[in-house]
Write a protein that binds this DNA or RNA. Structure first.
Lengths: 131, 131
DNA sequence: CAGGATCCTATTGGATACTG
DNA sequence: CAGTATCCAATAGGATCCTG
């Protein structure tokens, strides 16, 4: 890698968290990343089918942003019909702990969501156990 | 806990990830959660000072949503001047792996962000190492 | 101290139709 | 197949002022 600033340019502790969040925020990014982590390489429509009810516009957007942020690699095959494959870059693969943790948490708590999936957000919990 | 549905109500794999993301999405939520994880219990203005350049409206919003989602506990002391303390609930503490992973990734890659912090998003990377 | 109430803008997200 | 291009609605986010 060409030039790497070693300066942490004084940053509050939460700043690191904020930095990571800023890259994976978005309704679908983590889902996209997760599928690429699981399956290695996927084409555009393969991703679309897996994520279901993502629009192609959103998928395109999220993929572009992830690419710009250096988290995924976009391989275009010069042929017709077109073929484009997406995969994680090294830096993208370094998100693995985050993605695994998200998946694990989701698996453990998915019951708490309405039967409509995530649409209806979680319930109003009465978990009044404090600190 | 009163009633727990054991039904996973058929859900795509990415759905679990989506569920987790839906709770922690938002520009500040993970930062709030991270500080509460680190410091245990914090008052409103303590959080505000730590996060710096979050507005009080946003902080209030995020805290309310986190509370509704059962991730944080809000303890109000009936006194004047008012005193309100926030802390993680059990379910909130279960986010620890996610928060730690975010922090770790941020620490490792914070250099990639502009000197203005997160404001300028990351650079356009030339990391053309593929699958 | 810990917010509530308003107002406003920017960004996100979605529907639909079209294309090399 | 893998997108663009438009248009539009919803939400997130922010600035400012007020209050028990």
């Amino acid at each position: 890698m060409a030039k790497t600033l070693h300066s942490r340019f004084d940053c509050t502790p939460g700043c690191s968290v904020e930095a990571a969040v800023s890259l994976i925020s978005g309704k679908w990014k983590c889902v996209v990343l997760w599928y690429l982590l699981e399956e290695g390489t996927l084409r555009f429509n393969e991703l679309r089918r897996r994520i279901e009810n993502i629009t192609q516009r959103m998928l395109t957007n999220q993929l572009r942003e992830l690419e710009i942020d250096g988290l995924i690699h976009r391989e275009v095959y010069a042929q017709v019909p077109p073929k484009v494959e997406y995969s994680l870059t090294q830096r993208g693969r370094e998100l693995t702990p985050i993605l695994m943790a998200l998946k694990a948490w989701g698996d453990a708590h998915i019951d708490l969501f309405g039967k409509d999936g995530i649409a209806g957000k979680p319930y109003a919990v009465a978990a009044d156990e404090g600190a």
